[in-house]
Design a protein around this nucleic acid. Structure first.
Length: 811
DNA sequence: GAGTTTGAAACT
DNA sequence: CAGTTTCAAACTC
């Protein structure tokens, strides 16, 4: 498996949506050809050729202010990308090397808050940004293993491997997750979109407009890489749309080779950017729609890749706290779902690319066809691509020891691997079990489409998880992050996200040794394909609680795998049911920001919820810090998040503290002692002084007896009250008809509040009496019941007497 | 509710 | 690894 660098997510566009207002900006071409706006339909477009184009223009502009702030720079040998976004984010990108492209995002204005620097090393591309937009997540896409390798730092080996595989490794550095540059492609395949491009090509002029405030994030997405860089000409149109506090951006990128004047390539990405100011409770309607990717080369039928997705109303329905399966995200994260290139030589293909955004996350799915086969990608459709049961969902984590939950995808219907013949990459698809049977509706032999994902809302306590559920044949994307963001298949800088291989790759198996409580790992049964979904424990718990979706099935889940199947590991020796059913105690942290083990919430792998803490960072809004803290804790103690109370040795049923206590003054008979608190006795591993928490300890016995007595008393009181109420109700039910028929005074008139209170007092006194005499519980209950019987007799007697009196009076 | 005690966690 | 400090819960008043 390949590990996706933590920053992968950040590299992807925040939101992608379809926009009708995408402007196709023609680019001056030496050949005189201009990029033509790609029609939404499947109209073939001339293919681009590998020949470097004389000039490249990539413009990102917002509709509103593009004209005002757009800045374009173009050189014959250098590619310059300028991005202007409204008044806030003018960015210029320039590529200065023939063999490498340097993208530099420069603030066009003095007030610009973000600058991006991109360098293409070894064809790899590194992009660094500063300010609000910084990229620090280089990744490498390698098709060698049918894998997408996203490395934190593209290693030379990986890069070389990727290059040898025919791909253009891209090294991306991003900070702030604003810019995405990726190359996914296959050598010899004239696909796609590449940013930046190798030198020797005409400069790139990119204009980016952004109406968005500082939260605006621009991400450059390059699709279709090959060993040799391809000329890129792109235009980006930026739209600002209000969608539940989200901002939508449209990025349109068109690439055109110099040789093929008639081979315009157009790639349109619509981005939806979440407002960072949104609170976790804010409902976010993930929406991704419409993107167009067009590519053409001379002599080759043009390829049109359209990424469009209708607004998913279902996802919008999510309200309150929402959590995508992958909470490890910061707001406005984008997920790349899949990349593939079919070998079919179909002259034209329509591929639906499901781009789902849930809770501020975006998922970008791109399929690429083999060279020579024109392809059109259209979202919201079914796909005819080969799909295998593979699921890979990474929800993030910190380093190798992040909170992980692997969503078991038990049936192939749940998860499907989209494998395109000839494709070096595997598509991973998560589908619902209910609709998995449907294989989609191929619109044509070469058409693949994906259905709109359905949102899955899971509520657990105050936290709700929203997971888009995509029917069969669709990519399942789950974004567990409340409004901020989460990603299914992505990585962030501080949270490492793993993309599991569609096919079993032992070398990339995640390290499960340090999984904190709540980790759930589940292999996808069947087909030898293994899929993992890594999600935070709490999310898994919530997922399992959801009535909407069944994410896991015990069947086919081999226990021998050693994978933990429970959503939440026992905490402090308590069973999962106990921990989940019992309300969590709110913390009161003031200085630790709830990011240290001092905080019980944090220590239990939970988010703070309804706590009394101050300056809490143990929430999705501070996922980065949280993940960092988790990593720190795990670095300090790999078992920091494991339950402290485990089983004793040799199968003894007694639980014991894993580390033992160190009490000095409490005698281990107060809740200061973790052993005592867990209601277990101290063991040999304890270092306590003056311990009285052992089997024969008289103090302990007394204490336990008192505690038990108190507990019994409470239980008895509760039981007595319940029984009394029941008896009284029953009495009333039985006596009412008699009284009614007799026309006399209703006996329940005598069951007044005072009578009830007196009865309860009598019962309580009996309970006290039993307690004082150290009666066993059974005997105590008997005594109370006897007293209750006496009370009833008195009530009945009084009622009967009253009735008799009434009757005599009436007569 | 404020203050104290306590021991785990964190730090040195 | 040991000593010290920090921290939040447990406890007391």
């Amino acid at each position: 498996m390949d590990v996706v660098s933590p920053e992968l997510n950040s590299l992807l566009p925040d939101e992608i949506m379809d926009t009708e207002a995408i402007e196709d900006i023609p680019h001056p071409q030496p050949g005189g050809s201009a990029v033509q706006p790609e029609p939404s339909d499947d109209t073939p477009v001339p293919m681009e050729t590998d020949t470097p184009m004389a000039s490249e223009h990539l413009s990102l502009c917002s509709n509103a202010t593009s004209a005002e702030h757009t800045k374009a720079l173009a050189t014959t040998t250098n590619a310059t990308l300028s991005i202007s976004s409204g008044s806030q984010l003018p960015i210029s990108i320039s590529s200065s090397s023939s063999s490498s492209s340097l993208l530099t995002f420069k603030p066009a204005m003095a007030t610009s808050v973000a600058s991006t620097k991109t360098t293409d090393s070894l064809t790899g591309t590194s992009i660094s940004t500063s300010g609000l937009q910084r990229l620090t997540a280089p990744f490498t896409i390698s098709a060698a293993n049918h894998q997408i390798i996203l490395n934190k730092v593209a290693s030379a080996q990986a890069t070389e491997a990727a290059r040898s595989a025919g791909n253009s490794p891209q090294v991306i550095k991003q900070e702030g997750q604003k810019l995405l540059v990726t190359t996914i492609g296959k050598s010899g395949q004239p696909i796609v979109l590449q940013l930046p491009h190798t030198g020797g090509k005409p400069g790139i002029s990119q204009t980016l407009g952004d109406n968005k405030s500082q939260a605006t994030q621009f991400k450059v997405v390059t699709i279709g890489g090959r060993s040799e860089l391809k000329p890129l000409m792109g235009s980006v149109g930026n739209q600002l749309t209000t969608l539940q506090a989200q901002q939508l951006k449209t990025v349109q990128i068109a690439t055109k080779t110099a040789v093929s004047s008639a081979a315009p390539i157009k790639f349109i990405i619509t981005k939806t950017v979440n407002s960072k100011g949104l609170s976790p409770q804010t409902s976010v309607s993930p929406v991704i729609t419409g993107r167009v990717l067009t590519q053409s080369s001379p002599g080759i039928p043009s390829r049109t890749i359209t990424l469009s997705e209708p607004l998913n109303s279902n996802m919008q329905s999510i309200s309150g706290k929402k959590i995508a399966i992958s909470p490890l995200k910061t707001p406005s994260k984008v997920t790349v779902v899949s990349v593939a290139s079919p070998t079919s030589n179909a002259s034209q293909k329509s591929i639906a690319l499901p781009v789902n955004v849930a809770l501020g996350q975006q998922i970008l799915t791109v399929q690429q066809s083999t060279s020579g086969s024109p392809v059109k990608l259209t979202t919201g459709q079914t796909t005819t691509q080969n799909i295998k049961s593979v699921q890979s969902v990474t929800l993030g984590g910190v380093g190798g020891s992040q909170f992980k939950a692997i969503i078991p995808l038990t049936t192939q219907s749940n998860v499907q691997q989209i494998q395109v013949p000839g494709s070096r990459f595997h598509y991973v698809r998560l589908v619902t079990t209910t609709t998995a049977s449907s294989s989609g509706h191929p619109s044509g032999p070469s058409t693949s489409s994906m259905q709109t994902a359905k949102p899955m809302v899971v509520s657990a306590g105050a936290v709700r998880m929203s997971v888009p559920i995509i029917p069969a044949q669709t990519v399942k994307q789950m974004a567990p992050k409340p409004l901020t963001s989460s990603t299914v298949v992505t990585t962030t800088q501080t949270q490492q996200r793993l993309i599991m291989p569609a096919t079993p790759l032992p070398q990339i198996q995640p390290n499960f040794t340090n999984l904190p409580p709540g980790t759930v790992l589940a292999p996808a049964p069947g087909g030898g394909n293994v899929g993992y979904a890594v999600v935070p424990a709490q999310y898994v718990t919530q997922l399992q609680q959801t009535p909407f979706v069944t994410l896991a099935s015990s069947s086919g889940f081999p226990a021998s795998t050693g994978v933990q199947t429970q959503a939440r590991l026992p905490l402090n020796g308590l069973s999962t049911a106990e921990t989940t059913s019992r309300p969590r105690k709110p913390c009161n942290c003031t200085k630790s920001q709830c990011l240290k083990l001092y905080c019980d919430c944090f220590a239990n792998g939970e988010f703070c919820n309804n706590c009394n803490c101050n300056n809490c960072f143990n929430n999705l809004e501070h996922e980065t810090e949280r993940l960092k803290a988790i990593k720190t804790c795990l670095d300090r103690n790999p078992e920091a998040f494991k339950p402290k109370i485990g089983k004793g040795k040799e199968g003894e049923s007694d639980r014991r503290h894993s580390k033992g206590c160190n009490c000095k003054r409490s005698g281990c008979l107060k809740n200061y002692c973790e052993c005592y608190e867990a209601k277990i006795m101290c063991s040999s591993i304890c270092k306590c002084i003056g311990c009285k928490n052992f089997e024969e300890s008289p103090e302990r016995k007394t204490l336990m007896h008192l505690a038990d007595a108190a507990e019994v008393r409470v239980l008895q009181q509760t039981a007595a009250k319940t029984k009394l109420s029941s008896q009284i109700s029953d009495l009333l039910m039985r006596t009412t008809p008699v009284i009614s028929s007799g026309g006399g005074k209703l006996p329940y008139t005598f069951v007044t509040k005072e009578v009830l209170e007196a009865t309860c007092e009598c019962l309580l006194e009996q309970a006290k009496k039993a307690e004082q005499t150290h009666q066993p519980q059974v005997e105590a209950e008997r005594m109370i019941l006897e007293e209750f019987g006496h009370c009833l007799m008195r009530i009945i007697s009084s009622a009967g007497k009253a009735k008799a009196d009434c009757a005599s009076i009436n007569c």
